[in-house]
Design a protein around this nucleic acid. Structure first.
Lengths: 225, 225
DNA sequence: ACCTGAACACCGTTCAAGT
DNA sequence: ACCTGAACACCGTTCAAGT
């Protein structure tokens, strides 16, 4: 969830990996960074269901219990991995002086693209609060873009409309994708839309842009009034 | 995901509980209906993490392995439970001749309310395709409401904008809620927004209405042009 | 047709012990 | 400070056996 970005202070009240500092020595065989890389590699290769402490450990050539020196629980791996792939999106954001609507379009697009590029990320994003540093960076860019458009409440509404669109679109696109993947596997004669739409994710991506435009038009209409 | 509702045909290609007919005899001690009720009761009481085959079985006074006569896998329980709580929303929908915008507002509102009333439902909805009968009923009501507003593509865009808003808002609201719950447990001095906002879900509910209005204004603006 | 019971191959997590 | 190894209390699922 992105809503926290309108209220960054409350993030400090929540026990999350991102608030716990990492313990480390001079030459450890493990690092939180290495763990995150291994987790992402595993997830990209074998999917969300493959995320177990034991498999991540095997991926890194250590024992499962070693991971607990660096993270507190399995969910931490999820949170770190999701925020990890958001790094792609959080780097290279639109310039601060960009027009508000193109700033939102660009940021939202990158956010959505990162989540759908790693299907597991979209799956997890629906059930975990998105309060990692990269998620916060992305959220702030949207907040800044809307700053000055209407009063505070109008901004809060616009922020939620955009955020919800990103999360909702990403999870829906991925769920639809995996649905069709199942279908193709289980029926040999594939005569459904999976054929007429060779790349469902690409189609959804353009729908995402257009749905976002709808929201931006709504904001504009309200702002001009 | 709701996107399937714009393409009901493809649902038949996917191996889901909803396509498998139930086996039953005259007086079985178990029923798919009883199982769903027990699952929902368990989830409402103990939360999403408590959903295990063994606990559901205990809830119903049978052995875990007995459940496999009625469902194929654990995920089936998730899908059935989520669609189960959507029954509240799918019953008593706005009349077919209601104005399109109030029809959408009412339907979306009920959909969102059902998902947030059972926090586990919102959590699961983000990672499972919403293709149960009640989800389909709700989706169809939205599709029907938009029928005739613009060409087919404009309708598809509007459908996605509304659907994504429902899913995104529900998952965000619930994630935020649980975040704050954690905070209250782990810090004795609760001086964050959880205090100034005694009922976060209620606040989010009114934000949901307003964000949805933004989308409806976008649709109107486009339609009038 | 329905339900049990044993069994298999896993899980996450704790914790004492090693270095 | 970091990592191992054993151990605990779970999991989902299959399948032969009962009725």
């Amino acid at each position: 969830m992105l809503a926290i970005m309108s209220d960054p202070g409350s993030a400090h009240q929540f026990d999350s990996v991102f608030h716990r500092t990492e313990r480390r020595r001079s030459q450890p065989s493990l690092t939180r960074e290495r763990i995150v890389e291994g987790t992402i590699a595993l997830l990209d290769r074998d999917g969300a269901r493959a995320l177990t402490m034991r498999k991540v450990a095997t991926e890194l050539g250590v024992h499962a219990t070693s991971l607990y020196w660096y993270v507190k629980r399995r969910e931490d791996l999820v949170d770190l991995a999701v925020d990890g792939i958001l790094a792609e999106a959080a780097a290279d954001l639109p310039a601060p002086d960009a027009p508000w609507d193109t700033a939102i379009r660009e940021t939202a697009r990158r956010y959505y693209a990162a989540l759908t590029a790693h299907t597991w990320a979209a799956e997890f994003a629906g059930s975990r609060p998105l309060i990692g540093p990269n998620a916060v960076t992305l959220g702030r860019r949207i907040v800044n873009a809307l700053h000055g458009l209407g009063d505070e409440e109008q901004q809060a509404v616009a922020i939620r409309a955009v955020s919800n669109q990103i999360i909702g679109a990403a999870t829906s696109a991925v769920a639809m994708q995996t649905t069709k993947a199942h279908a193709s596997h289980e029926h040999e004669a594939v005569m459904d839309t999976a054929v007429s739409e060779p790349d469902g994710l690409a189609v959804e991506h353009t729908y995402f842009d257009k749905a976002l435009d709808l929201i931006l038009e709504g904001i504009t209409a309200r702002h001009d009034a």
